[in-house]
Nucleic acid binder design. Sequence first.
RNA 1: GGGCGAUUAACUCAGCGGCUAGAGUACCUCGUUUACACCGAGGGAGUCGGGGGUUCGAAUCCCUCAUCGCCCACCA
Length: 1105
Amino acid sequence: MNTELSSKYDPSAVEAQAYQVWLEEKCFAADPAGPGEPYCIVIPPPNVTGALHLGHAINATLQDILIRVHRMMGFNTLWVPGIDHAGIATQAVVEKQLKEQENKTRHDVGREGLVERIWQWKQQYGDRILEQLKRLGASCDWDRTRFTLDDMCAKAVRETFFKLFKDGLIYRGKRLVHWDTFLQTSISDDEIYHETVKTFLWHIRYPIEDDLTPSPGTPGEGGGGGLPGDQRKDPHPTPPPAHRARGQDSTANKGTGLVGSAPRTVSPHGQEMVRNADPTATIRSDVDPAAFDEDGKAPPRANYMIVATTRPETMLGDTAVAVHSQDPRWNWAIGKYIRLPLTNRLIPIIADDILVDPKFGTGVVKVTPAHDPNDYAVWQRHKGQPDEIDLINILTPDGKIGSDRPEWSKYAGMKRNAARAQVVEDLKSAGLLEKEEPYETQVGHSDRSKTPVEPYLSDQWFVKMAPLAEPALQAVREGKIKFHPERHAQQYLSWLGEKRDWPVSRQLWWGHRIPVWTKSWASDASPDLPYLVPEDKSTEPRVIDLRVGGQKLILVKKRDDRTVTHYIGVGACDNESPAVLEKAGFVQDPDVLDTWFSSALWPHSTLGWPEQTAELAKFYPTSVLLTGRDIITLWVARMVMMGMYNMGDKEAVDALTPSPGTPGEGRGGGLVADKQNDPHPNPPPAYRERGQESARRAEALALGLPFLDVAINPTILDGKGERMSKSKGNGVDPVDIIDSYGADALRFTLTKMATETQDARMPVKRDANGKNTSDKFDEGRNFCNKLWNACRFALSNLENVASASRAVPPPLENSVRDADLTYTLVDRWIIARFNRTLTTCDEAIKSYRFDVYAKSCYDFFWGDFCDWYVEAIKPAMKDPARSVQTAEVLAAVLDGALRLMHPMIPFITETVWWRLNEVRPRRGIPGRIECPPSKRLVLAKWPLATSTDASAEEDFPKLQAVISAIRTIRNDYQVNPKVTVDVFIKADDDACGKILSSRELVEMLAICSLKDARADLAPIQNAVTANVAGYEIFVTGLIDPNAEKTRLAKEIETKEKSVSSMKARLGNEAYIAKAPPHLVQQSRDQLAAAETEVIKLKESLKKLE
RNA sequence: GGGCGAUUAACUCAGCGGCUAGAGUACCUCGUUUACACCGAGGGAGUCGGGGGUUCGAAUCCCUCAUCGCCCACCA
């Protein structure tokens, strides 16, 4: 291997070689049996839909920084890479490709054909994604790469579903889905596009049936039923074994999760599966009744209501009319009935303050629960209430009016538009059409068939949220999991707080097939059953928990009616369970699980759960989750829930959740309230205070938490603040940047952008090759180039200087030696600066302030190390008397700097490290910069911050100020850089002593000759002067009286400004009385200093006249 | 409609009660001294979005308005 550093920095060569070495030497491989505290991150698996973008790049870079830092700190470190199958999204791109390339639909190739094609896609893009991560420098343990659809994850998915089912947390329920009447399938939200359609808004009269006492058959009487389609007549099926559900709602939730044609579970709030019932919706209680009564008189009570609709044909399925409870025009009618035109059905007038906005339209809304999401929500809200309403489906799967109701038989078989025309015509002839006005509306269309979609009730599987969500809420409320920045916890809390049940089935082909098998047969003939359940002759609903061939299997037997028995089988973790069931004639549910179902298990499924693997034991809970804020709800919340559910110790989890009796109302404020009570919210613990951390970890382990911290990285937007996307053409491909700038430069720039803000902007432009790029990466590239060259220079110097003969390094315990005193000021200063930078970086990384880490490294390396230190030691390095000592410091500081920056800039630092090891294998300054040797930087020890050096940090900046002042004068007078100027300095004895002891430095860096420095300096004629840091500086030989007058006048002006502002401040009695004394003193000192400087400047000015 | 965020130099951003408000890029001047022109030295550049308030003191905290953006929900 060639360790020479090329004179020109070439990222591609450096990067390829270093990465290859890391891989060959298995530097990223984790060993659960190895030493060290665990530190684990599981990657947010990128969707296999396409290549990685900058969002992934920043996310992966930050994770890699954490992983590399902790690896160097001696943690047993594991970064699990992986990819997400991304159900809908991936199927959609492959279907699109199929259409474009072969002009086929998924129905043409069939389920197996399509799935096979998607696997091909996965192979191609999955590999590409992993390749991209490698080019970025990600130090993942590649042997543990996972895919959310691989066998390991599949096992975890089946086990979880099984467990949830057994615990009664999974149920079958109805949900309104988008229905494509042409393809006769439900489609996802993503596959809908909206088209503006010109239609009419029809205003229809609904006659109020006055003075009608509710008859026994009408709803509201509590259970009389009698309405066709009423599902309440079904008996509740037998609950599965009553495993104790978690959380305060447990009692209300037991005994569900089973077969059924309609949701029967009523959670305390009636929200159990309402996708569209938004419990946070504003209830319009602020309505002022007077607003409807402009004349001060109550309006006359009408004997009909007017409803407006764009879809009159749906009135066949109306089951109520809703008004606002505070609307004086209509609230008197609540509880009365409408005689629904055309069908002659009686439907109730109900109050629903969420649905109805009294300020809009007539204030009356027709309610069609089976065909409108909002109306469905109304049905949900009123279910179980005295004003419960009915639900009537009027459509057949192919989008025609059904024939199951005699009252609308006239319309049966008509398609939407025909039915609409007929209904309108009939209303007209009945004189019930009040008005017909042109209207534009957005109609959802199916992306597949290009036909309008219908909201359609369909059977879906749901996961009950309340018992899962409550512990997950508590875990964050009580700080067991911490968000960084903290404010992001709010989104998590408010979303989970809704506890909306989670619809987990998707009508797709790509994904984890729902592990449910069903079979129905006449109850007197069950030929295959004995194979599974030898002795079951019962016709009663029951749950049969059994093992077949050692496989966990649960069977639910439900008597549907007298002649047919349904069995549901749910297979658990083994691949053979399906086979067992299928052999017995069971048929698997055609749907797949929501892609987030497998994602929710990611932190523990990737470590081997449900097997008790060594990885799981060592690395769970993971240390931190780094992700974008857009998936806090979809993903983070679900991981916490499922982690606690699968991994948590039941007692610990239960103890976390307050029982219903405990006062819980005080915690409405959540985080905010806690923050106010705690004087030190989220205190930044010193990085190595391990005790606190391991206590937190133990607690998290008991609770089953998937991670201790959640760090949110910013979203990268383009220069206009818009999200990057392919369709907009404003996306930047990280690989393009790596090709042109290098991975280190990309990483540095992204790290520096990782502030606490939620968005980071990146102006995008096109490069010469027509690719998108951004000037933002210049900074990273420049820094990398600087780093490369400074290292080359340092190494070439070290090559020429022999190592000190003493044995190095001695153990850390050795305190600072007396020999330290022999170090020069600049040596002591750079060592102090290094240690201070290290401390800052430790804190920054601990608190996920990656920008601070990047900025500190940049300032230290470029601003201190290159600009001052390296320049300052040039003479000493050429002087045999001093070079040995100087080289020791140089080597140690360089060593420390490489370690410090390696996590962010891994390739260059590693490459330089190899050369440094050759040139100077032993290095370190005992007690100041320890440099324990390591062949590879990636595995080297993280530096330990040591004491700082107050006097060096105070004195050196004064030298810098003097040098800068002389340089400024030189520049102002445009002195040729080769010309040496003469300088005299007046200051007190101590200060003069200091400047004289660094005389060489000042003379070299300011290109001057320091003629004299003393307290009693004789007046200097015709000098250009400056006053800094207690030094009065005179530069002779270049005076231009007029220019100097202007210069001094300007100087005096600014100084006087500061004098007057200080005076004003000190003249304020309240300031003297109330401000902290040290600030008052500081102001006084500043005033004094400024005043004397003004006097001196004025003296100088006088001399010129 | 709800939530979150942003508004500081020409651009991209730090700073979040107390230094004369900083950095990078761009710009201007000077300079190729063998680490680096992807460089060095120096410089100009800002009523900290507007308006109120709290405070001895506000870019920083509170209220309000305006503009922009992101996420979520929705438009009978």
